[in-house]
């Protein structure tokens, strides 16, 4: 008999509590982020249309790769680090300059520049090893994850444009010519010197 009334009491109490919980969640904003409509790229953009409890894309999200060619030294360490060889770099000589990378405090010395820097995003497995290997931080993951293309070859991202490539090759041949001229001058000078000694 006691159990009978306890059952009734428990039933009423649990329904009472359960209904207060479900009505409370009725007033809480929905958690769903309606993705294409809510801009999830940053916290400020998300807050404009979304009132729930979730945050935007995480800062360390590994989206598609991006290369900052101005600080790239064409050292090819990323090519060696890549486990599936989806990065291809062709490099030529350029004017010697110092570039300040995002990783190291000391500026790096740039003597070579890329004429081709292709990343096949179709093959890339977003492991992030290339970004670890890069001494200057030129290659880095972005937060972009919308990268669908209609053709497979469109997934090969060329970071060096044709103009830049031609420019670099032209400068390279000039440098080579200069170097050859300097070498010839030096050789001529040395020849002169040896002749004088004779």
């Amino acid at each position: 008999m006691n159990a009978y009334f306890n059952n009734i009491k428990n039933g009423i109490q649990t329904v009472f509590e359960g209904m207060s919980i479900s009505l409370a969640s009725f007033f809480v904003h929905p958690v769903t982020i309606q993705y294409p409509e809510d801009d999830i790229s940053s916290a400020e953009n998300l807050k404009k249309t979304y009132k729930g409890q979730l945050g935007p894309m995480p800062e360390n999200y590994r989206g598609i790769l991006d290369v900052d060619l101005s600080i790239c030294t064409a050292c090819q360490l990323c090519v060696k680090a890549c486990p599936i060889d989806c990065i291809v770099i062709d490099a030529v000589k350029c004017d010697k300059s110092k570039v300040q990378g995002t990783k190291a405090e000391k500026p790096a010395v740039k003597t070579r520049t890329c004429t081709r820097f292709d990343i096949h995003m179709g093959k890339c497995m977003f492991c992030g090893l290339c970004t670890l290997a890069c001494p200057t931080g030129a290659i880095a993951h972005t937060k972009v994850f919308e990268m669908n293309k209609f053709q497979l070859q469109d997934l090969v991202l060329p970071f060096v444009s044709e103009d830049e490539k031609e420019k670099a090759i032209k400068r390279d041949s000039e440098l080579k010519a200069e170097a050859a001229a300097a070498k010839a001058a030096k050789a001529a000078k040395e020849a002169e010197k040896t002749e004088e000694e004779k």
Partner: peptide
């Protein structure tokens, strides 16, 4: 219950 539920979950 509303106060308990509206605490941000703190995901990222």
């Amino acid at each position: 219950n509303y106060k308990e539920q509206s605490i941000p979950v703190g995901l990222n």
